[in-house]
Amino acid sequence: MIEVKDLCKNYGSNKAVDNISFSAENGEILGFLGPNGAGKSTTMNIITGFLSATSGQVLINGTDVLEDPVEAKKNIGYLPEIPPLYPDMTVDEYLNFVYDLKKCKLPKRSHLGEICDLSRISDVRKRVIRNLSKGYRQRVGLAQALVGNPKVLILDEPTVGLDPKQIIEIRTLIKKLGKNHTVILSSHILPEVQAVCDKIAVINNGHLIADDTAENLSHSLAHENKIIVQIDGPLKEVKQLLTAISDVESIYERKTADKSITEYEISSKCDIRREIFKRMSARNYPILLMKSSELTLEEIFLKLTTGDFYGENGGEE
């Protein structure tokens, strides 16, 4: 498991990572989400001991990365943003080197064979890395992280450069690995995080602004029973009809491109979709669109990472 406590990293006066704390248990996949330059890679580099923190603590299975780096690093498999490959080696030579480097004790031949099968690079094992395509390089990088079967996997944007079929394969693989490993993966691709991760940590400007499951995030940010409807009918009358529904709390209307159609955002105490339908159909005003305004991950992300939400939550900058 991984525990990150009050992590800070300053580059001069610039705070790349500001007071981040989170943890991931064994068998958990934590998605690290944030726009470019948010501090994802920096945080991952600190967790793996590549960079040191200005302050704060990282524990890998209870071992402090700074205090006992060699022991802590034994438990980490790391795929950095750019896979750390030596272009002049063949895949086989490279994996053998990593095997020796990590002082791995598992039976060499079968272990490396297994990893190559998992990451689907068995057919390029004899080829020189320089000549491999981006997708293959990415997968060799992933294979490298798996050598030695470390308990903690840190994957920085693992699906970059892969084609859609490979992306699905790698996601399936990560999900499978997540059952008995602790996995942290970073991404700015939202559906990916949604598809793979149990928990999501959203990071922006070096601040951790959310750390929860995808559903909880969506719930906590979306207002209960808020729906958006588009109705073709005279504004005044439609609004009157809507206000007459007993549980409605507030209505905002917006003009759309078509003058006769208005969009209404309705908050209510309970589900009023049927009631709206009945009333509108009685007057023959067609409902053109009706959707719950429960936020998608994309909207959560935008909401969290744009200034207004950040301001509301007491950011200091």
Binding site: G49, F50, V70, K73, Y78, P80, I82, P84, V98, L101
Partner: peptide, 14 residues
Amino acid sequence: RQKTDQLTLTSPVS
């Protein structure tokens, strides 16, 4: 330059 130091420096070698 090739970022392979991210491999060596994060492996259990001093």
